[in-house]
Nucleic acid binder design. Structure first.
Length: 561
RNA sequence: UGACCCAUGGUGUAAUGGUAACACAGCAGAUUUUGGUUCUGUCGUUCAAGGUUCGAAUCCUUGUGGGUCAACCA
């Protein structure tokens, strides 16, 4: 356990948990030990990323430690598949845990402590049915009533509890309950269940146990065993805190303390594990790692970087107020990172052929292109140029509106890093749609300037027709059309708000250097957006995911017209 | 009709009894061989009513609004 030392304090103000810690430091407490405690029953999402960044961030900032602990007290819902994915995601985010722990490692200790509570007269075996327990608990406004088994003797309780462990009873026959107060205003304190009988195989302990501790009984004690100083969880556990403290006090063990913060919500998506599972099971999405999912693996596949997610977690802040973060902030964070690190490439999403009539036939030249104007060290690359090229259909208009800087009949534009061209003739198909442009180029204008110093405002991207390679581009939009898909109108469900255009695949023509792109790389397709190769991508059958589009101020102006 | 938590621009988050600010979004402009980036400017905020105080976003009271809790889930 290391001493508290403040390291790389960020410029931002302290959040309330950091304030609590700094007050403790001022009082002379010298240790910060946190933990990230997922139940291995599903994939991690962006909300978990906030918690991970908070817990690991606190440890890092104050020179402490952060554990990874799997809260695996319910064998029927958990699986090793999930522990593996959770570890992968935490590592991907850039964090390394001080220790890897499992609540199931503490089953024996937890059991011994339960016997201790029975011996103290603070716990009893209850024979009531689930239904009887539920009704006798009362409601939020009416007190509960005591179980007829509440006053069993210590010896009888001990005997029964041992026989529960020995497997003498069937699931649901008996439970162990804490003896607190059936009239307590806090429902959680009305003799909460500590153990239930579950003849079920556990992914780590196998069939060693047939009784399993409940969350409330296991969590605080697990924190205590690991000597966690700051047990950080989300707001809905606020009402559990008195119970958390009660067990620790009755047992007289290391006093970990719980602090609650507001979970993350994001517009146009949802964090409910149950609903995300439904989307996977009903094949609305391709899987947990579908790029439209708010899961960490989905964001990764979509091209989000760990740095972007961490920056996002830092910017959303930590407080106790319910919140819904604008998706725009997440997108800002990934653009901010990718703008600095992603190499630029040219890709034509919707190709329109252009023939440069005064350019020599069968000639090819290599145009020097800057890889990243934000990073000189990224260097340059050569891109082939020839008489026939493709430009994007949206970069040409027969009858352009005002302030349209791109190509139109008689107008001139700059081909990025190459020449100025002028549109001399438009060739139409039988439906009246332009299918080819005949242009002339200014041989003196290569790389910049022009033969006579004239200024040309428009710059468009291009690919050489004989050199370009084909690729599938998957263009993503929000999965839902509603800002808060959980907020459903009368008679509807969240699936009624699915966006039919959340994924659109197009065939594009891209520059040849992209043939060797590999999963994990990010590129900015100039003037289009950020893209990353999808795991489905194969040589000769390239697939790229759009991480996020570029900011599009022309699109905004055009939309207003 | 219980206990607990929360309430600051459109969205988040600060201000810790002393000039309500920062980011994102929006708007306007400058720069730009990406209508990107960068830079500048700008719009706009303390749930209500009382009280304490020289002074309240902050403390107190009462409301109002939102949230959590009645799984042998976590």
């Amino acid at each position: 356990m290391s001493e508290v030392t403040k390291t790389d304090a960020p410029a931002r103000p302290l959040n309330f948990i950091e304030e609590i810690i700094e007050e403790a430091i001022a009082r002379g407490e010298t240790r910060v030990h946190t933990r990230f405690p997922p139940e291995p029953n599903g994939y991690l999402h962006i909300g978990h990323a906030k918690s991970i960044c908070l817990n690991f961030g606190l440890a890092k900032r104050y020179g402490g430690l952060c554990n990874l602990r799997f809260d695996d007290t319910n064998p029927v819902k958990e699986d090793v598949e999930y522990v593996d994915s959770i570890k992968e995601d935490v590592r991907w985010l850039g964090f390394e845990w001080a220790g890897e722990y499992y609540a199931s490692d503490y089953f024996e200790q937890l059991y011994q402590w339960a016997e201790q509570l029975i011996t103290k007269g603070k716990a009893y075996v209850d024979d009531q049915t689930q239904e009887q327990i539920r009704t006798s608990r009362g409601t939020v406004t009416v007190p509960g009533t005591n179980s007829p088994w509440r006053d069993r003797t210590v010896d009888e309780n001990l005997d029964l509890f041992r026989r529960m462990r020995a497997g003498e009873f069937a699931d649901g026959d008996k439970v162990l309950r804490a003896k607190i107060d059936m009239a307590h205003p806090n429902m959680l304190m009305r003799d909460p269940i500590m153990y239930r009988i579950l003849h079920s195989e556990h992914h780590r302990t196998g069939d060693k146990w047939c009784i399993y501790p409940m969350y409330d009984y296991a969590h605080g004690e697990s924190d205590s065993i690991e000597r966690i100083t700051h047990s950080v969880c989300t707001l809905e556990f606020d009402v559990h805190r008195p119970l958390y403290d009660w067990f620790i006090a009755e047992l007289g063990i290391f006093p970990s303390h719980q602090y609650e913060f507001a979970r993350l919500n994001l517009t146009y998506t949802m964090m409910s594990k149950r609903k995300l599972l439904q989307l996977v099971q009903e094949k609305v999405v391709g899987g947990w790692d579908d790029p439209r999912m708010p899961t960490i693996c989905g964001l990764r596949r979509k091209g989000y970087t760990p740095a972007a997610v961490r920056a996002f977690a830092d910017r959303v802040g930590v407080a106790k107020r319910d919140n819904v973060i604008d998706l725009g902030l997440l997108e800002f964070c990934v653009r901010e990172d990718l703008n600095k690190v992603a190499e630029r490439r040219m890709a034509v999403v919707d190709p329109l052929k252009v023939v440069i009539t005064n350019y020599p036939e069968n000639a090819t030249e290599n145009i020097t292109c800057v890889n990243n104007p934000e990073d000189e060290a990224a260097g340059v690359r050569k891109v082939p140029f020839s008489r026939e090229i493709y430009i994007d259909r949206s970069d040409f208009m027969v009858d352009p509106p005002k302030k349209y800087y791109r190509l139109s009949p008689g107008a001139e534009v700059r081909l990025r890093y190459a020449y100025l061209i002028r549109c001399e003739e438009v060739i139409y198909d039988s439906a009246g749609q332009p299918i080819e442009l005949r242009c002339t180029y200014d041989p003196e204008s290569k790389g910049g300037g022009s033969s006579d110093g004239r200024k040309v405002k428009g710059v468009i991207h291009w690919v050489s027709a004989p050199h370009a390679i084909e690729a599938e581009l998957r263009l993503y939009d929000t999965l839902f059309t509603r800002e808060n898909p959980d907020d459903v109108e009368e008679g509807k469900t969240f699936t009624d708000y699915l966006n039919p255009d959340s994924m659109v695949a197009v065939r594009a023509l891209i520059e040849p250097s992209l043939a060797s792109a590999t999963v994990g790389q990010s590129f900015q397709f100039e003037r289009v957006g950020y893209f990353t190769p999808d795991p489905d991508s194969r040589p000769g059958a390239l697939v790229f995911n759009r991480t996020v589009g570029l900011k599009d101020s022309w699109g905004k102006i055009a939309a207003k017209e």
